[in-house]
Amino acid sequence: MSELAIAPPRSVRAPDFEGPMIRCDGVTKTFEEGRLRALDGVDLIVEPGEFVAVVGPSGCGKSTLLNLMAALDQPDDGTIRVAGHDLGHPPDLDHFRAVDVGLVFQLDNLLPSLTAVENVEVPLFTTERSRRRRRRRALDLLDFVGIADRADARPPQLSGGERQRVAIARALANEPPLLLADEPTGRLDSATSARVLDLLESLQRERDVTLVVVTHDPDVAERARRVLHMLDGRIERDVRDP
C-alpha cells in the first residue's frame, strides 16, 4: 500500500479539538411518532484512534446510531459531539459531513453513472475548486486503496470488493479523522472481506483514523479493539480488547 502523495484540499482544516472523537450523552431516537424507540438513552465515548465494532441483533439500532454520528439525522433527545462539533447546534452540518466524517455503507453506495475515479471526486467538489487537483487526488486515493487500474470502470463493472474500496477511497477524500462504516463487508465473501478489513485496519493503525464499524461479521468484531453489544436501542455491553 502506497502513501498518499497528494495532500487533502487546502480548505480542509486539520482537526484541532480536545477530548474524545465521539461523545454521546443520553441519545434517544424514536420513529413512527414516538411509538418506535430505535435508540433509548445511549451514552458513549470513543477516543481518537480507536477501532470500535458495533454488534447486535437486527433492528437494535446500530445503523440509527451510526447515522446520528454522521449527522444524517438528528436525535430526539440527548447530545452528540463528534470531532469537537456539537451536532445539535450545527454551524454547518454539510461541511461537517464533507470533511469531519467518512461514510461507507453496505453496498450500492456509489453513483452508478460515474466511474470509480469520478465517484471519489464527488466529495471533493465541496472542498477543492481545481478540477485537475480533484482528479489527481481521486486517482491517488484509488491507488492508495489498491485499485488504480480500475479508475475508469463504472460500479456495475466492479466486483463487490472493488466497489467497497472505491467507497472507502471516497470516504477518505477529505481526510476525515473519523470513518463510519455500516456493514462494509456485509455482502462480500470472506476472502474479499478480509482484504477490505485489512485496508480499514491499516487506516486506523497507520493513519490514526478512528474507526466505528457496524457489523454482523464475527471477523470484524474479532479485529476490533473494542466491541459494543447493542440490544433494544441500548448499549448492553462494552467490551475492550476482547
Partner: peptide, 8 residues
C-alpha cells in the same frame, strides 16, 4: 449519497 458526502 451526495448529501451524505457533504453536498449542500
Amino acid at each position: 449519497i451526495l448529501r451524505a458526502v457533504g453536498w449542500t
